[in-house]
Design a protein around this nucleic acid. Structure first.
Length: 202
DNA sequence: CCGAGGATTATCT
DNA sequence: GATAATCCTCGGA
């Protein structure tokens, strides 16, 4: 039985790039309303940090949408992209420092049958290999925005998982950035993933 | 196999 | 009014 204790708030208080790197291999845990448990290993993340980062929602001043990024670390920041997709982020860095880590993909470890119920007819590696697919698989929506992920109280948290050695980590530019994003933010290697893992997005 | 374009709506300008 | 940290489908080769 693995230890499902939530990671402490101090972990998320680090710079978003540190959090993104260290979240690789960690276990994303979801307790569904009916009590069913889903566990998934995080295999791909992206960091967004600072008011200078043109790719980050925090690039503007505080707005109703990006307010969670300015809030306490370890809370969820969930927002709707393209009018269709919910994306899950974890707030990083201390209060008033706008930063978050986007959870882009994860590998199912337990409760695959509960994911399959929502992803009928798809190949398993299509279930969670993308930020919007992941939220569908785990039943995450805007209702989870701002929730504290350092407690098990809300049915969603992150626990320590396996250590991923540097030799198995790859980095690259972030994906799907808008056309307003210019260098250096366009190419800065703030995306992390586990090499050769089939659940990493394409 | 690959690239183009549509879906669908909260949020910001 | 335009845009968006994506995904899926469809048409062409």
């Amino acid at each position: 039985m693995s230890d499902l204790t939530p990671l402490p708030r101090a972990f998320y208080a680090q710079h978003a790039t540190q959090v993104a790197r260290q979240l690789l291999g960690a276990t994303l845990v979801r307790r569904l309303p009916d009590g069913a448990l889903i566990r998934a290993k995080i295999v791909e993340t992206e960091a967004y940090s600072g008011t200078d980062d043109l790719a980050s929602h925090g690039r503007a001043k505080r707005t109703p949408r990006n307010l969670p990024m300015y809030g306490p670390p370890g809370h969820a920041y969930v927002y709707l992209a393209y009018g269709i997709h919910w994306l899950l982020n974890v707030v990083a860095e201390p209060i008033d420092s706008p930063a978050a880590v986007l959870i882009r993909a994860a590998e199912p470890l337990e409760g695959a049958e509960h994911i399959a119920a929502r992803r009928d007819g798809r190949a398993p590696y299509d279930w969670t290999s993308g930020p919007a697919r992941l939220t569908v698989a785990l039943g995450i929506t805007g209702a989870h925005n701002k929730l504290d992920l350092t407690t098990t109280a809300h049915g969603l948290w992150i626990a320590a998982g396996e250590e991923v050695p540097d030799s198995a980590v790859r980095t690259g530019a972030r994906i799907g950035l808008g056309k307003r994003v210019r260098e250096p933010w366009l190419s800065i290697p703030w995306r992390w993933w586990i090499a050769d893992n089939p659940y990493v997005s394409r």
